[in-house]
């Protein structure tokens, strides 16, 4: 099947005060339509930077990102940040309309689309509130609705649940799975939580090293709904840990 996005030989480097830091090197990544890909790896390995490059907040130093032109979508990508980053002066409905204001949709259409997106995450009844009147979990669901409302070819998520308490996080994980299964949305999900990655994704890509490179890529052929203690998933998580952990040990040995 033709992929939605093809990343080839992607390298990202920063220059600060004359010192060049290479964050990511030679990354290849293809994502199929409807696929849920999770990227894991330690902090500083360039996971978030990759998302920033894909959405256009940063530019790569090498490599190409090609989007499949046959995919029908309002916009190529939408991003859900770690903190919800709702606009505090806008009511919830208006926050979800935000991304749609860049489209050709009429005011009424935008409103309908935003209401549908909010209903999709179970927040139809808080549309008139301001962000500060919502809980952290609710705010993050609004941020998800804001991203989904623009019907992106790929939904990018940057550690979206890492700031939430365990119960809320697990609730939102299940919610995301439900929304994703229902819509067939293609997702690229970044997290440092390996258990979260294997619970959610169809495929987990682990980045490690400095500069970051793909250390292992695993397909998880366990159908949803999954059990958090599923043996196959536990096994995959263990393998990813092994690879990333060996990497960390090796690096620390080398430092000593």
């Amino acid at each position: 099947m033709e992929s939605v996005i093809a990343v080839e030989g992607l390298g990202i480097a920063f220059e600060q005060g004359g010192v060049r830091t290479e964050v990511l090197r030679g990354l290849d990544l293809k994502i199929a339509p409807g696929e849920f890909v999770a990227i894991v790896g330690p902090s500083g390995v360039g996971k978030s930077t990759l998302l920033r490059v894909l959405i256009g907040l940063a530019t790569p130093s090498t490599g190409t990102v090609r989007l499949n032109p046959d995919i029908k979508a309002d916009r190529a990508m939408a991003l859900v940040f770690q903190d919800s980053r709702l606009l505090p002066w806008r009511r919830i409905l208006s926050n979800v309309c935000f991304g749609l204001e860049k489209t050709q949709l009429s005011r009424v259409e935008r409103r309908e689309r935003a209401l549908a997106a909010l209903a999709g995450v179970g927040l139809r009844d808080v549309v008139g509130r301001f962000p500060h009147q919502l809980s952290g979990g609710q705010r993050q669901r609004v941020a998800l609705a804001r991203a989904l409302a623009i019907r992106p070819a790929i939904l990018l998520m940057d550690e979206p649940f890492s700031a939430l308490d365990v119960q809320t996080r697990e609730g939102l994980q299940d919610e995301l799975i439900r929304v994703q299964s229902a819509s067939g949305q293609t997702v690229l999900f970044v997290t440092h939580d390996i258990d979260e990655a294997v619970y959610l994704a169809d495929r987990v890509v682990a980045l490690g090293g400095r500069p970051g490179e793909v250390k292992i890529s695993l397909n998880l052929d366990v159908p949803h709904p999954r059990r958090r203690d599923d043996v196959a998933l536990r096994h995959s998580a263990a393998r990813i840990r092994e690879v990333l952990f060996a990497e960390t040990i090796a690096r620390e040995d080398w430092v000593i």
Binding site: G56, L87, G99
Partner: peptide
């Protein structure tokens, strides 16, 4: 962070 939100949504 809020300016980034605008950029991420195409503004």
């Amino acid at each position: 962070d809020l300016i980034e939100v605008a950029e991420a949504f195409g503004f």
